[in-house]
Write a protein that binds this DNA or RNA. Structure first.
Lengths: 347, 347
DNA sequence: TTGTAGGCGTTATCAG
DNA sequence: CTGATAACGCCTACAA
């Protein structure tokens, strides 16, 4: 095992001082052409590479960014991560990922682990449990330490920092309007238990669209499913006992399961029931019928978050000035597929 | 911004030496109970946390592991990653992810970036381009530097290191045998262009199963699709012009697309054509019909890879001894769903 | 019981 | 042009 060679090694071999080597390797013209070349040749020969850790210690910059997400086996987060990774890599940063598994404790532990010098800043989406508890002390503490923080998608008003969100409410409205335009009036909503901020926003948009079109909100047309595990019975009852001609779902899995149930009961899609889901993932593209879907442009979101974060990391800023925090909104867009009827002409 | 407090700060405030503080904080009984308590109280009060970077520099251990994978928006890799992350986290390690995007150059650049002290070891799956070129110099170099390396799934014989693979050949055989047992004889294979080691192994298993059951291999029943982008026309022709009663696909996407085409042409699944795919992801679970699938147990693979790596990292080992390298085989299993007929009794 | 000194690898400042 | 020194934050052998 040939351990990595250091400046000191080179200095010893070439009988010069460490500082001469250091300067020579950065081509400083403090050093004579001769020695410079000699040193550079030697370094190349022995494949010298500066030690990142030492440089980090010196600069107090690690060129690492920490990403804390609730789940990695999840199309949307994965997509955002790709956006982050690409942008960060382009800027010479590496990305450390920690998965909170929707657990408050893990989120806290992971952040503490990273906050002690391992990273220059955080990008994160809150775990479900954190949102449920509404406890954001760990985020505030990180902010107090002067570590830049960017929240995306699963955000909260209670922490002053940069944020990247999609226009959930508006996107839900537009989806519902799309259904209304194609002649649907009894529109169901499938959502999860409501402590997730994004779900709440989507429900808000759903209600507003109904209201705007003079359709009364009907609570019996809202199916609230538990977040994590499958509860097939609830859904079955819902589909058997309620009459509706369209469904908006806050994610694609609920939509796909809904379509399967509807077909099982003999409904045609989209003629009898149309479906629109959030999260434009694999399932939407490959289901039968293919699912009309609200694309969240995760990769763009990730890139945006990374851009904000690295901006803060590299340019000194005043973290006490609330005006310096931005919230970027990524506009979702509706991808029309087989599960909805085409809208009326001109719409 | 209250920067993190250091040993030196504590020492200055309490008018003791840095080493006293250091020892006191690790409860060394070299230090009097009195000073110990005073120092610990002070440290707690100011929320002292040792600086990871400094510790890394001192110990030459970063407690980071580098994961290099071809793609993150990919169910299998994501699953493996989860296994790695969980195991590593449990052992106090963080995970730095780099995505090679199937590109040789990015793979090399990423590894060089990390190999200069940022990580204690690598876990990786080779990019398609790397396998195509067969150039593994960068891996060898890492190994020479004494950095432990574990390859998973996309491996090569040409680099001596620990490996984690699934029994691709055998799994493909078993899948084909499953089809044969349910009465199918003309079994098609959908695979990708063949420079991927895993695909080659699966094809081998496919052929062997046929042979073992006296079914002649028919090259016209093999559809080879390009790796990255969709080539719908090739598939359509294949489904229109060839007659077969079952399909084995090396991934779930090809299988799902195949099922859609087959249904479009009026075939019933599984009565007319059964399907089995590799990669037991979302699509397999939620497609219509649901897809019988070879589960690769990615999470288990990831955990295994992390275990091997951390083992090497923490226990000195002799990297010149080829006998010290292990290849762990994770056994795939067949998840039966609607896209295949149940096997005959007793099988 | 406490403190000093040296080192991990690098860089910046200043002296020669 | 070159080198000595200090510093980043921490640890530890050794001295007092």
């Amino acid at each position: 095992m040939r351990k990595n060679i250091t400046l000191k090694d080179i200095a010893r071999e070439l009988e010069v001082s460490v500082s001469t080597v250091s300067k020579a390797l950065k081509n400083s013209n403090e050093i004579s052409r001769d020695t410079r070349e000699k040193i550079q040749a030697f370094a190349r020969l022995y494949n010298y590479k500066p030690n990142n850790i030492a440089i980090s210690l010196k600069n107090k910059r690690t060129k690492n960014i920490g990403v804390v997400i609730p789940d990695i086996v999840h199309h949307f987060f994965t997509t955002v991560f790709r956006g982050i990774e690409k942008y960060a890599n382009g800027k010479g940063y590496n990305v450390i990922v920690c998965v909170s598994d929707e657990s408050f404790d893990k989120e806290v532990i992971n952040m503490e682990m990273l906050a002690n010098g391992s990273i220059d800043g955080f990008i994160m989406a809150l775990s479900a449990e954190t949102q449920l508890r509404g406890d954001y002390a760990h985020l505030r503490q990180v902010a107090e330490q002067g570590i830049p923080l960017v929240l995306f998608d699963r955000v909260t008003e209670e922490v002053p920092c940069d944020k990247v969100v999609i226009n959930d409410e508006e996107a839900a409205m537009q989806a519902v309007e799309h259904l209304i335009r194609s002649g649907k009036r009894r529109i169901a909503l499938i959502t999860n238990e409501s402590y997730l901020h994004v779900s709440a926003m989507r429900e808000k948009g759903y209600r507003r669209a109904l209201k705007d079109h003079g359709i009364p909100f009907d609570d019996t047309l809202v199916l609230r499913l538990p977040y994590q595990f499958e509860e097939e019975e609830l859904s079955r009852q819902f589909f058997e006992t309620r009459k509706f001609d369209a469904v908006l779902s806050v994610n694609e899995i609920f939509a796909i399961r809904g379509m399967r149930l509807a077909r099982g009961q003999g409904y045609r899609i989209p003629e009898d029931i149309s479906f629109i889901g959030f999260t434009d993932g694999m399932l939407s593209r490959y289901s039968i019928p293919t699912l009309t879907s609200v694309a969240q442009h995760g990769e763009e979101m990730g890139a945006c978050a990374a851009r904000l974060l690295i901006g803060k990391v590299e340019h000194e800023y005043d973290e006490t000035d609330p005006g310096s925090y931005r919230t970027e909104v990524i506009r979702a867009s509706l991808i029309e597929r087989e599960s909805t009827l085409p809208g009326l002409p001109g719409s």
